[in-house]
């Protein structure tokens, strides 16, 4: 080993993007974008300043939420939200399973695969509220439109994750079942289902939680649930009632999360 220590070699941290042209182009592009984006922000500061008072009132409202004066509206809305959540999650799971099977490339033939993936893509791309608007126009006001909306959204979520799970399953286990001479149904129930079942239950619990949160907004467009009550409360600037509703939502979500944590832990 030669001891030719070069004196004072400079060192700088190598940049993340090697090509300097690319690097500067990216940096300047992001800067230009930020300037343009903020430029198109037309904030009425006077209005914002005016609103700060109201915002403060709203925050204060959390220290004395008003559950009482609109309790019948709140409880009706919450019960409707809960009912929509339960039915749509149950129905969504039932439909998701065949669609999820169909969207898994390793077990479904190509045409079925394309159709199922198409359904999933549409369900995922359209926000629940858009679907709800269309369905309210078709079915009329009420929880039925909300139920269909949430079921449809559940399909996009659950079927996609289920399909990915099935595609990731251990091939050797599935092959071992096939080698026994099992039929397609036997193969799915013995070779695939045990592998994906725990995660499917976990995901369903998670979706129950999401559906409850989403059900809180469907009321805005007349599709049932607590959202309508909340909207009215905001419209009338009844922040005490709004705070009460929001607190209930947060508590229910926390409870659901806790519950699903327990169930998932027991499945492991």
């Amino acid at each position: 080993m030669s001891a030719s220590v070069t004196t004072s070699r400079k060192w700088r941290k190598p940049p993340m993007i090697k090509n300097p042209l690319m690097r500067w182009a990216l940096i300047s592009a992001s800067l230009i974008y930020l300037v343009l984006a903020f430029g198109s922000f037309d904030v009425n500061w006077a209005r914002v300043y005016e609103g700060l008072d109201r915002g403060w009132t709203f925050i204060l409202a959390f220290s004395h939420p008003d559950f009482a004066s609109r309790w019948s509206d709140i409880s009706d809305g919450m019960i409707e939200s809960a009912i929509m959540t339960v039915t749509s999650t149950a129905f969504g799971i039932l439909i998701s399973i065949p669609i999820g099977l169909g969207a898994a490339r390793n077990i479904a033939p190509l045409p079925v695969y394309i159709v199922c993936r198409g359904i999933i893509a549409i369900s995922r791309a359209l926000h629940e509220i858009i679907v709800a608007i269309l369905l309210v126009a078709i079915f009329g006001f009420g929880p039925f439109a909300g139920f269909v909306t949430l079921s449809f959204a559940t399909i996009g979520f659950l079927a996609k994750l289920l399909a990915e799970d099935i595609e990731d399953t251990d091939k050797s286990q599935a092959e071992a079942i096939k080698a026994t001479g099992a039929s397609w149904w036997q193969w799915v129930t013995y070779g695939i289902q045990p592998q994906v079942m725990p995660r499917l239950i976990g995901l369903s619990m998670y979706r129950l939680d999401i559906n409850f949160r989403e059900s809180a907004i469907l009321g805005l467009v007349g599709a049932g649930g607590i959202g309508a009550t909340l909207n009215t409360a905001f419209d009338r600037y009844e922040f005490d009632t709004a705070a009460a509703i929001i607190i209930i939502i947060i508590v229910v979500v926390m409870a659901l999360e806790y519950l699903s944590g327990i169930i998932r832990a027991r499945l492991q």
């Binding site: 220590v5 070069t6 004196t7 004072s8 070699r9 400079k10 060192w11």
Partner: peptide, 9 residues
């Protein structure tokens, strides 16, 4: 720079 030199050494 003395730290960098030492590191290279």
């Amino acid at each position: 720079q003395s730290d960098v030199d030492e590191a290279f050494r």
